[in-house]
Nucleic acid binder design. Structure first.
Lengths: 97, 97
DNA sequence: GGAATTTGGTTTATAAAATAAACCAGTTTA
DNA sequence: TAAACTGGTTTATTTTATAAACCAAATTCC
């Protein structure tokens, strides 16, 4: 009789959801690319990437390309699971009976 | 190049979305019913209903039934529009290309 | 060659939200 | 008649999101 499943609060955030949405369909993406695609400010993105990383929804690696620092993000299996069940749960809200 | 539409922050909240989801498929519903269906606390629900009402996404009426106060909520046309475009926009996040 | 700008971020401060706790007026129950 | 319950609202606290400030290194401009 309970009809609304809880939505993972980590994913129920516009920017974090956008990041996960990008990462789910791509092997990996770097900070600048994600920033452009999402339209986020660098500061906000940095914080949200940290949170996704802390939850191990994504894997973050930093290296240099020539002289420039590059931050690369990749979704983890755990992240894929979380995203998929978030989408699943959200359907109850979007297509009410 | 930007691919994510902004999500109406008023609707991008678990409880408010649940309330709207309930109201969209029903003519009207009262406070107690919504509280039970959503599992929210009364305080939280009261606050969130106020916000939806302030945005004129819902219409709130209070009356007495016998000796008991009853708060009735009904979605407005504006609320229906908002809900529908929220759902629309959200699809970009859920079904990434 | 030195000041100003850009790149690729991080850290910190502020604003906004969600949630919980306390409260209230009236009613019913023991 | 005191205690508990109903149907909420208000206020306080915690959590989040966002913005602003900052940093180091590299590049560009005069």
């Amino acid at each position: 009789m309970k009809q609304f499943s809880d939505l993972d609060p980590l994913l129920h955030s516009q920017l974090r959801l956008a990041v996960m949405s990008l990462l789910i369909s791509v092997q990996e993406a770097n900070f600048v690319y994600i920033k452009e695609k999402t339209g986020a400010t660098a500061g906000n993105l940095s914080v949200q990437i940290d949170k996704l990383s802390a939850a191990e929804y994504i894997d973050v690696k930093k290296h240099f390309e020539g002289k420039k620092p590059v931050t690369t993000c990749k979704i983890t299996p755990r992240g894929i699971d979380a995203f998929e069940s978030y989408v699943q749960n959200l359907q109850q809200y979007l297509n009410p009976k």
